[in-house]
């Protein structure tokens, strides 16, 4: 399976993602934001970080960079695109997934492990995964997912919510919501479910001695689903 990780100026989780993808069998290529052509890929990843310093608005300038035209075309023709953290912010800026990401509710940068509940398994990312709850890591200042009531209805009707913040038993109550996201949403799909944006970092949970292994579950399952 071939994957591509896009490196924007200021991306700083691109190397971690490269390590994670290779560890679970992807042939990964790093693609520079200024390139025009996307290499042949089964999965394109927009990594975390601070694309273009996040100086205008998180992900805003990256969404207009050269390579993104190819990424958008790839997504619109059914290709798998996954945006993590800043990558999720870039995805909402492109409009590939609905909604926006606001500043965290308590105006604090949050850096900690969280539990997320898999809301939908009828998609290529999460199908066949045994767990209902995964432990991932978050580190963000703008991860407060928001959308209009109409959008929310549409998202829920289409079962586009991928994961919700929860406790270790999968309870998705407000108290387990770290950043104020509407309905505890931590990640969502586009309508066709080939594009996934999520705030948590699975690539930070692939080492038993450093973190945890729920990221390993995710990537293992992902490559098996793609085979």
């Amino acid at each position: 399976m071939k994957s591509s990780v896009i490196t924007f100026p200021g991306s700083n989780c691109d190397r971690d993602m490269d390590v994670a993808l290779k560890k679970f069998g992807f042939k990964n290529k790093m693609v520079w934001h200024d390139d025009i052509e996307l290499p042949k890929s089964d999965l394109v990843v927009l990594p975390g970080g601070f694309s273009y310093g996040d100086y205008l608005r998180c992900g805003s300038m990256a969404s207009k960079s050269k390579i993104m035209k190819s990424v958008i075309n790839f997504a619109n023709s059914g290709g798998m695109v996954m945006g993590i953290c800043n990558g999720f912010q870039i995805l909402v800026e492109t409009g590939l997934v609905p909604g926006v990401l606001l500043r965290n509710k308590y105006l604090e940068f949050i850096c900690k492990n969280v539990f997320v509940k898999i809301n939908d398994k009828k998609n290529i990312y999460f199908k066949n995964i045994d767990n209902e709850v995964l432990e991932f890591h978050i580190a963000h200042n703008e991860g407060n997912y928001f959308c209009t009531k109409d959008q929310l209805k549409e998202i829920e009707d289409n079962e586009q919510v991928a994961i919700n913040y929860c406790d270790k038993d999968g309870k998705t109550e407000e108290q387990f919501n770290p950043n104020g996201s509407i309905k505890n949403i931590a990640g969502i799909f586009n309508k066709e479910k080939n594009v996934l944006g999520m705030m948590p970092h699975p690539e930070r949970m692939i080492d038993p001695s450093l973190s945890g292994e729920d990221g390993s579950l995710f990537f293992n399952n992902l490559i098996n689903n793609l085979k």
């Binding site: 200021g10 700083n12 989780c13 970080g49 601070f50 604090e108 940068f109 850096c111 580190a139 200042n141």
Partner: peptide
């Protein structure tokens, strides 16, 4: 705390 965390996070250093 914001300053220390914000700068470190931008630099990708925990």
């Amino acid at each position: 705390v914001h300053g220390i965390g914000g700068y470190g996070n931008c630099m990708g250093v925990p």
